[in-house]
């Protein structure tokens, strides 16, 4: 039970799912930092990405790279439109935070039920991306699709880091998150940066969803549980801090995988929520001490 290959297999599994939580959690934090809002439809962006990717790859028969790029673009537009034409309109009407949260909850229901009508109300098979069913890794064999998820998540996280810190636009985004008035006074289009922030987090979620397609299959509730774990990760790391979200996401990946292996498969999700509630109760600021208390 505690032999090296078993542990290694678990670690790879934990890293795979943990990295998904990490990137999704970065999306949550990015949105929170830039707009001060919470998006309950995050998991459904991931799920929608899986369906869109499936359509490009399987139905239209495009090649895998092109499918990923197109999924990124489509999901970016979905996220951007959501922010510019739903959230902003609602905010301009003077809606409070509670109403925005409910709006994203409604969107989440809309997406989950919408895809069932457009595509199918059952799980769709995502064709294998690689010709080999498994590749040797150290002493064990791993499905290449799992490694692809890990690779895409890692690349996304690193790319996001450089985008935010090394490009003009990233600097503008960080500036408008810090102080909107000051940012707009030096000529930054704050509305546009907010829209792009939502677009980016939706696009990253969508690409990950597509990568997860071959692993889990594509179905309407694909994103629901993943989003809640990512959420837990973002809170644990310190909500609003993208690096905290990475650490938190990986933490829950490990907790979930090792609980399932050594404690109980049935209770693996319960344990996640118990930990989240405990953290929200005793240390709601998370690892990176983001301010969340009134």
């Amino acid at each position: 039970m505690f032999t090296f290959p078993v542990i290694l297999r678990l670690v790879i599994g934990a890293l795979m799912i943990g990295s998904v939580y990490a990137v999704l959690g970065m999306g949550y934090s990015l949105i929170y930092k830039a707009t001060g809002l919470m998006n309950l439809a995050m998991g459904d962006f991931l799920m929608l990405g899986a369906f869109v990717g499936l359509t490009f790859y399987k139905t239209l028969g495009l090649n895998i790279y092109l499918s990923f790029i197109l999924t990124f673009v489509v999901m970016f537009i979905v996220g951007y439109v959501t922010q510019r034409y739903l959230i902003t309109v609602l905010l301009n009407k003077g809606a409070s935070f509670s109403y925005i949260i409910l709006c994203t909850a409604g969107l989440s229901m809309l997406f989950q039920n919408g895809v069932q009508l457009i595509w199918a109300p059952f799980t769709l098979q995502f064709p294998a991306i690689f010709s080999k069913a498994s590749v040797p890794f150290l002493s064990i064999k791993v499905a290449p699709e799992n490694l692809l998820v890990l690779a895409i998540a890692t690349v996304s996280a690193v790319a996001l880091h450089f985008f935010l810190n090394k490009t003009r636009f990233g600097t503008a985004m960080r500036a408008s998150a810090l102080d909107q008035t000051a940012a707009s006074s030096v000529g930054i289009d704050v509305g546009l940066t907010k829209g792009i922030t939502w677009g980016l987090s939706a696009a990253l979620a969508g690409v990950l969803g597509m990568a997860l397609g071959p692993v889990y299959g594509v179905y309407s509730a694909l994103g629901a549980m993943i989003a809640q774990k990512a959420f837990a990760g973002a809170v644990t790391g310190g909500y609003g801090n993208i690096y905290g979200a990475v650490i938190g996401g990986l933490f829950y990946g490990f907790v979930e995988t090792f609980t399932a292996a050594y404690v109980s498969t049935a209770y693996k999700d319960v344990i996640t929520f118990v930990i989240l509630i405990v953290i929200l109760s005793v240390a709601p600021n998370g690892i990176f001490k983001e301010k969340v208390i009134e």
Partner: peptide, 27 residues
């Protein structure tokens, strides 16, 4: 704990609570 938290985190906590109860009665 909920009475200490600001709006977003309150809704988060309540979602987590609801989800936990749902999972427990399910398992």
């Amino acid at each position: 704990p909920a009475s200490k938290l600001v709006k977003h985190f309150l809704s988060l906590l309540m979602i987590a609570f609801g989800q936990m109860v749902y999972l427990i009665v399910n398992t």
